[in-house]
Design a protein around this nucleic acid. Structure first.
Lengths: 234, 234
DNA sequence: AAAGTATTCAATTGATCTATTGATTAGAAG
DNA sequence: CTTCTAATCAATAGATCAATTGAATACTTT
């Protein structure tokens, strides 16, 4: 602030310049919420559905207090809502437009930040045939029983909704289920979102075993948001 | 970092947790670029087209050095590209997906940050009949000569492209052009984007004079991005 | 009422961000 | 070659942010 010496003088003149700046400041508030890796990770988990604070803390590797503070920042920016039930407090995204925003952010990062491409490539070692299968295409093939769909998320997430016909095989149990998989049928794995590593990992391991495996485009939240059918339990 | 004592130990183990965090950190880099009101304002101007540093500095009210630094941050985040021609350096958005991202950000802010709605309402005093006219609808009416389209941006921006049939009337000259406007025909004003104040202002003033005036949905960058016809010069 | 649990609050420290200032570079023009 | 201009760089001070710690709150269970 070059003109106002007092820090808490809000905006003396209600001219349009102030209005405009005020408005951009509000947009920036949302941007700030997206400016921290831990908060983005929390948002990705929340895109799965409602979650309690301690779950989020565990899964993101942050302390509970820290997680709570990040969640409050997200709430102040209007990105999440909370609900108290007994002792627990559940957080959820405040609307589908948040998923849209996160996807736009991801798309830009992928397209423009060279680093992201490098990371993905490094991690995947093999690059060929890694194009994810589009949702519609997968749905079509599921209908005709042409693929085995693998949901590699933890059982709780699977229970809360999954792609119809999908089999829940958490990554840790993948080895034990290898024999149950038909080596002639293509396997499509998915998890939380476009960059959830579980699916990447699963595909890499399956391919090591000589199986035909691909990832599904994006993840389950995007599947649900696209209005495609969702199955509960199994 | 709780485990690594040395600050510049990048990531010792290439486990998937690190990979994931690394990835979110890259996304956060883009988020950071969006976390400052001045940078968002610069991006809005750049959505208009290529601009030099000093132009951007003037229009945003920042010092040249400061503007330059913000632009470099935007470039490092992959949001803008620069081109040097003689003494001047021109910046532009690095792709259409940036406009998409900005729109998503705006949409979320509008929907969830109560403050934004309050500001818009305060500024506009009257709230009724302020729904902006959709682009397609406007295009249709322009074809049948049912509306007067007013471009309230500065002449240079107008010259670089505008809605077909639009008349360029910078806000300062609005009063002088009042007599040229047909009071029986509806007037649609637009400027840079959904929250560019010029159009808001113009509509408010026209309505004060008893004219039927509305804003166009969003602004010219969005019009162009929607693939609608653009006219050059006049 | 007492103990326990999930979450939030408050205070602190070190890190990062913003805007300013003045110097510096690269090219243009005299 | 000198002067001018547009832009960038470098250093700085003040503000804001992130993670930690320990205490406080709200609700449940015993």
């Amino acid at each position: 602030m070059s003109t106002s010496p007092s820090p808490d003088t809000p905006k003396p003149a209600p001219g349009s310049g102030d209005f405009k700046h005020e408005l951009f400041a509000q947009f920036a508030r949302v941007g700030k919420a997206l400016s921290n890796a831990n908060r983005l990770e929390l948002l990705e988990f929340l895109a799965q559905g409602e979650r309690g604070v301690d779950e989020l803390a565990t899964v993101s590797g942050l302390s509970v207090a820290n997680t709570s503070q990040h969640l409050q920042q997200l709430r102040q920016a209007g990105l999440v809502l909370s609900r108290k039930a007994g002792l627990k407090v559940y957080y959820r995204l405040s609307g589908d437009d948040i998923v849209t925003l996160l996807d736009a952010l991801r798309a830009v990062a992928e397209r423009h930040v060279a680093e992201v491409g490098r990371l993905v490539n490094t991690y995947l070692t093999v690059k060929d045939s890694l194009e994810p299968i589009p949702r519609d295409e997968l749905l079509e093939r599921v209908k005709h029983d042409l693929v085995t769909v693998l949901d590699v998320r933890p059982p709780e997430e699977f229970a809360a909704g999954h792609v119809p016909g999908a089999v829940n095989v958490p990554l840790a149990e993948l080895e034990q289920h290898l024999q149950d998989l038909d080596p002639r049928q293509e396997i499509v794995a998915y998890c939380r979102g476009p960059h959830c590593v579980l699916a990447f990992d699963a595909v890499a391991r399956l391919r090591e075993r000589g199986l035909k495996a691909r990832r599904m485009q994006d993840g389950f939240p995007e599947w649900r948001q696209a209005g495609l059918p969702v199955e509960l339990e199994d």
